[in-house]
Design a protein around this nucleic acid. Structure first.
Length: 543
RNA sequence: GUGCCUGUAGCUCAAUCGGAUAGAGCACUGGACUCCGGAUCCAGAGGUUGCGGGUUCAAUUCCCGCCAGGCACACCA
């Protein structure tokens, strides 16, 4: 990786001087060079000299280094590097030898868990869940690619009062089919899926539960509703090509006795008390927030309590790092969860949260209304059916998670250049078609041969960009946002299309240069396959 | 009222943990195939980075104060 090579060289000059500080290597505007560093700007105060002089010092020190074909000092004291052509050829050769492994570091032992898609199993996934699912899925893929031991996990809140409401709502719908009218609970569920479940129930059990509501019936309806909703959720997940390594239910957390355990720890630390018949956690003793109820006066557990127990379990499962991904509407949950972790003597950096902002669907510039209450909201399933898996995934991934996402349905469906998904997939299809054309023309592709013929600015630039994938992946794991990866692949596509338009790849008059460029295309193809795979979108040979 | 996120070209978005003249796409103007996929490419125009201060060699980025939008402030999850 070129960035590292440059970094190491600069670093060693610093240590010769017994000076230490942090500095950057970055890819600047092309006119400045291939890479640049701010080492002299930062270093001015350590060297006690003006930045330009410091920059000259580095530049002289490195003047004999074969890595660079040119080093110059510019602006207020930037150090700009041009990489020797020979290094680019070596790098390309290395990529062609190792293929995907070129970008894949050694496996490490760090156990990372991503929790996302967690929901009450009370209805189908919404569009909002979609963003979360895609963010979690892609980040998991990237961490895994970089050698982490990753667990993708979903938590199901199948024990709370929401499930009771769901059961009662279903029961009401069921009775309606017999012309018996009961009122839906005030916070009940109004989605049409419950009517469909009710119809199935009627077919299977006829009037067995008609006008009969007791504990046994409630249990049955809870189970029936949840299992059917899980079926719906799973079907959506498989349409999305999104898989979990593990699904943990709230019930199982309670059954494992973790709630008791957590309460015991809190009790021993004098962090709980009883008030108004409920059990409270002294959140105010830990952070600057109000105390919260753990056990309601009717004896049932709050979500807060079981979630603490669940996270305690994560700790016991020995994850090194846990990320919870959810919508920004849950951000209020964060400080008290952090506080609870502290109360359980779990290290501060064990748990982190990845919040994403909301999604708005737009059709022809108009906002598509989504409302959970009325039950006519657009489900994730409907979205996938309308725009396809690839567009769904790419669009959810392509914005910074901190910004509100405008999902343009028309754009997502369009098969034109405006649609970024098509743009990047088209580049891939085009590469394949060049290989096919080469065969037709009788130009034989010889792996790793003739690559020293590559010398054009655009060619070497692409090699650099391919090498940069390593940095992009690392950056994605640090910024915890998948849009860095979509931006990368979009940028590579631009570079490729531009190269394709400028330079003829297949030239029967010059077989060697044709083969050299086919090798370059082959490396590009590998990178597309890595990135498409991480994003979870298809790599089409033809479109 | 308090807390979190956002505000960048007409529109949708970038900007590599503070870097050089703030970049792409769409739309607009003008160009490029007898050809490897024109589903593409090249060029032009378009900006007081919401406003006002501060920090420093350097601020879209960090700090403070306003303004606007979104979200949250339950014995819901």
């Amino acid at each position: 990786m070129l960035r590292e090579l440059i970094y190491e060289r600069l670093k060693s000059i610093l240590s010769e001087q017994e000076i230490q500080y942090d500095f950057n290597i970055e890819v600047p505007d092309e006119k400045f060079g291939d890479y640049s560093s701010n080492i002299a700007l930062i270093g001015a105060r350590y060297f006690k000299k003006p930045p330009i002089e410091v920059a000259r010092y580095f530049s002289e020190k490195l003047s004999d280094d074969p890595l660079f074909s040119e080093i110059n000092v510019a602006g207020p004291g930037f150090l700009n590097f041009k990489i020797s052509k020979g290094y680019y050829i070596d790098i390309l050769n290395d990529m062609l030898s190792k293929e995907q492994n070129y970008w894949k570091p050694e496996k490490n032992d760090i156990k990372v868990q991503f929790e996302y898609g967690s929901a009450n199993p009370t209805g189908p996934f919404t569009v909002g869940h979609g963003r979360q699912l895609i963010i979690g899925d892609i980040l998991s893929n990237v961490f895994e690619f970089l050698g982490y031991d990753v667990t993708r996990e979903m938590y199901l809140n199948d024990a709370g009062r929401q499930i009771k409401l769901l059961a009662r709502s279903l029961w009401v719908r069921y009775n309606e089919l017999f012309g018996k009218s009961f009122e839906l609970p005030e916070d009940g569920y109004r989605g049409k899926y419950l009517i469909e479940f009710a119809e199935k129930l009627k077919e299977e059990f006829e009037d067995k539960f008609l006008e009969k509501w007791d504990n046994e019936t409630e249990q049955f309806f809870m189970k029936y509703a949840v299992s059917n909703i899980l079926k719906m959720m799973n079907s959506t997940l498989s349409k999305l090509d999104s898989k979990f390594d593990s699904v943990v239910s709230e019930k199982s957390v309670i059954e494992k006795g973790l709630v008791e355990k957590v309460l015991e720890i809190f009790r021993n630390k004098d962090l709980i008390y009883k008030k108004d018949g409920a059990i409270w956690l002294k959140v105010s003793k830990l952070i600057n927030e109000d105390d919260k109820v753990l056990i309601r006066s009717d004896g049932t557990y709050t979500y807060f309590l079981t979630d603490i127990a669940y996270h305690y379990d994560k700790y016991l499962r020995k994850f090194d790092k846990v990320y919870d991904i959810f919508g920004s509407d849950h951000h209020g949950h964060i400080p008290r969860m952090k506080a609870s972790m502290k109360a359980l003597d779990i290290p501060d950096d064990f748990l982190d949260f990845i919040l994403h902002q909301f999604v708005t669907l737009k059709r022809k510039g108009e906002v598509v209304k989504m409302s959970t209450r009325s039950g006519d909201f657009v489900t994730l399933d409907e979205l996938i059916d309308e725009v396809g898996k690839d567009a769904t995934r790419y669009f959810f991934a392509m914005n910074d998670i901190n910004t509100h996402l405008n999902f343009d349905l028309e754009l997502a469906k369009s098969k034109t250049v405006d649609n970024p998904v098509f743009y990047v997939q088209y580049a891939y299809a085009r590469i394949n078609s060049v290989f096919e054309k080469a065969k037709e023309k009788g130009i034989k592709f010889k792996l790793k041969e003739d690559i020293e013929k590559l010398e054009k600015e655009k060619e070497l630039n692409i090699i650099k960009l391919l090498d940069e994938l390593s940095f992009t992946l690392k950056d994605t794991t640090e910024k915890l946002s998948p849009h860095i990866l979509t931006n990368y692949i979009y940028g590579l596509s631009e570079k490729f299309h531009s190269f394709y338009a400028k330079e003829r790849i297949l030239d029967e008059e010059d077989i060697a240069i044709s083969n050299a460029r086919l090798n370059l295309l082959y490396a590009i193809k590998i990178v597309y396959e890595i990135v498409f795979n991480l994003l979870g979108i298809t790599a089409p040979d033809h479109m």
